[in-house]
């Protein structure tokens, strides 16, 4: 079995995996990072979004071996070491941007990618960006509100590192 090595949430990890292991399986089952969810398992819903080399991807549609040597960030890598929520997470809580919470890790990771490249998105741009993230509880109104609030918070705190 090939050995894959990557940096996950700032820590170097190395494991033997079968080539057919999905990145999301690797994160959840080999590393125990169960914050990344499997929703549809068909690249539609976005519950499994993580960052690979700083870009958001659907980890159910990537092999662990394809992430060999890469830098991966999951939802577990977003809050500070002392548990202080990342401004995007805080904004989702403040604005009731979640109900059951299943889609939230993917939403947060997707939004982190958006705000890194577009710190002041319009509401329309937020809705277009979230094309690949599905929420089946609330609809998207409060999620969009949360994203706009997070954008404002992050603009006010430029020193905060998203990753």
């Amino acid at each position: 079995m090939p050995t894959v090595s990557m940096t996950v949430n700032g820590k170097a990890v190395s494991r033997e995996v079968e080539p057919r292991t999905l990145l999301v399986q690797f994160l959840r089952e080999h590393l125990g990072l169960t914050g990344t969810h499997v929703g549809c398992d068909t690249s539609q819903c976005g519950a499994c979004v993580v960052h690979v080399d700083g870009r958001s991807v659907k980890s159910c549609t990537m092999l662990a071996v394809q992430a060999d040597g890469r830098v991966v960030t999951t939802i577990e890598g977003m809050a500070a070491a002392d548990g202080t929520l990342h401004p995007i997470q805080a904004a989702f809580r403040e604005n009731h941007g979640l109900q059951c919470g299943f889609c939230t890790p993917g939403m947060v990771m997707s939004v982190a990618d958006l705000l890194k490249n577009n710190p002041s998105p319009t509401e329309r741009e937020v809705r277009e960006w979230l094309e690949g993230n599905i929420c089946r509880c609330t609809g998207y109104h409060n999620i969009v509100k949360a994203v706009l609030a997070a954008a404002e918070a992050l603009r006010g705190a430029p020193a905060h590192a998203a990753e």
Binding site: V49, S56, K58, D113, E131, G132, N133
Partner: peptide
């Protein structure tokens, strides 16, 4: 094409 995550891959 697709969505942002699909366009990234």
């Amino acid at each position: 094409i697709g969505d942002p995550q699909v366009r990234n891959r």
